[in-house]
């Protein structure tokens, strides 16, 4: 294919990606070093109240945002260096907490507690999703042909449902005296409030994410299981391998590329955990990195959005995912250079 034709075919897609993905990245990078705030004027204001004989007047200094001739608030944008990053990371307080081994104080700073949750969430769900997905795939592969269709249909439901709605549907089972909370209380014989402390909410979030993503792993593993070489399995039996050995030495190595693929996709998707926070309204107890940026971008009561801090936390979030992906990118690059691609 000539370069010109190739460019014509790929052009629109690449143009869109540059305009809406690469360009915003640059703008976020620049914006993270800038601070936009309203220009404030100090005005001397005299307020008088009627009194006997003479009015009582007091003069006060009032700070007001300056307005231009249209009545809009005048804002200035200035370069502030690392100020936004400092405000997000809060390095002094963080360092003080670390050097005195005060975990609780470190978790008081939004960014660090968001980082802790995001990493914990990503790393804990990863093996669970792969394990549960593999187990369902093995079970379906063992089941009679007639029930496979309905089982796949039911399994796809958690995967396809809107994440916010899925999280809500689990929350409604537990909220207040929801049926599952009542059942748990009855079983454990004690009072339970699932939304009063962080760890129960985190438990529900972990459950939701595994519930939501395991079907994806299942479908891929199930497709992979159809191509397992039956001859290898039979020779393994002749060599005296039991079921566990066969799973361990024949089936799992065969599925290894798929496991890596799922791990990669899961890493990308779970690192941006966000919908759970909205669905479980957990921002008072647990927040994630993406939610932190979202929160900065939401207008506050005065209608201002903290773009500077949002950009800084967005850049930090991005650094995190790049660090997680570097080993993978290096491997792809080696494969490409080796010509095996």
């Amino acid at each position: 294919m000539k370069f010109k034709t190739f460019a014509a075919f790929v052009g629109p897609s690449v143009f869109l990606m540059f305009l809406f993905i690469a360009a915003p990245l640059v703008s976020v990078f620049v914006g993270s070093f800038q601070l936009t705030q309203p220009v404030l004027d100090q005005i001397e204001e005299e307020t008088c109240t009627p009194g006997f004989l003479a009015q009582t007047c007091t003069t006060t200094m009032v700070t007001r945002p300056a307005l231009d001739e249209y009545g809009h608030i005048v804002t200035t944008t200035e370069w502030v260096g690392w100020l936004n990053y400092q405000r997000v990371l809060n390095p002094e307080a963080a360092w003080a907490a670390i050097s005195s081994f005060d975990w609780g104080a470190l978790m008081q700073i939004n960014f660090w507690s968001a980082l802790r949750f995001t990493l914990m969430f990503t790393l804990v769900t990863l093996p669970l999703v792969i394990g549960v997905g593999l187990a369902i795939a093995l079970a379906v592969n063992n089941a009679a042909k007639s029930i496979r269709g309905p089982v796949i249909f039911v399994s796809l439901l958690p995967f396809i449902i809107t994440p916010v709605i899925g999280a809500l549907s689990i929350r409604w089972l537990f909220i207040g005296d929801g049926i599952l909370t009542t059942a748990l209380e009855h079983w454990l014989n004690r009072d339970i409030a699932m939304f009063a402390q962080a760890w129960t909410i985190e438990l529900m979030m972990l459950f939701f994410r595994v519930w939501h993503v395991a079907p994806f792993a299942f479908v891929i593993f199930y497709a992979g299981l159809q191509t397992v070489n039956q001859d290898t399995l039979e020779s393994a039996i002749i060599d005296g391998a039991n079921r566990w050995d066969r799973l361990r030495y024949v089936i799992v190595p065969h599925l290894m590329p798929l496991i890596i693929f799922i791990a990669l996709i899961h890493l990308m998707d779970t690192y941006r955990v966000f919908e759970e926070i909205v669905g479980f309204t957990s921002q008072a107890h647990v927040i994630s990195l993406q939610w932190l940026t979202y929160d900065f971008l939401q207008p506050d009561d005065a209608g201002n959005r903290a773009f500077g801090r949002a950009s800084a936390s967005a850049m930090l979030t991005m650094v995190g995912i790049v660090v997680l992906l570097i080993p993978l990118l290096r491997r792809t690059w080696r494969d490409h250079k080796g010509g095996s691609y």
Binding site: A22, M268, Y294, S311, T317
Partner: peptide, 16 residues
């Protein structure tokens, strides 16, 4: 690489 970017990073670029 673009696929891996959290969406909030991009939205922080669009909003202003």
């Amino acid at each position: 690489v673009f696929r891996a970017l959290p969406h909030s990073v991009l939205v922080a670029g669009y909003l202003p």
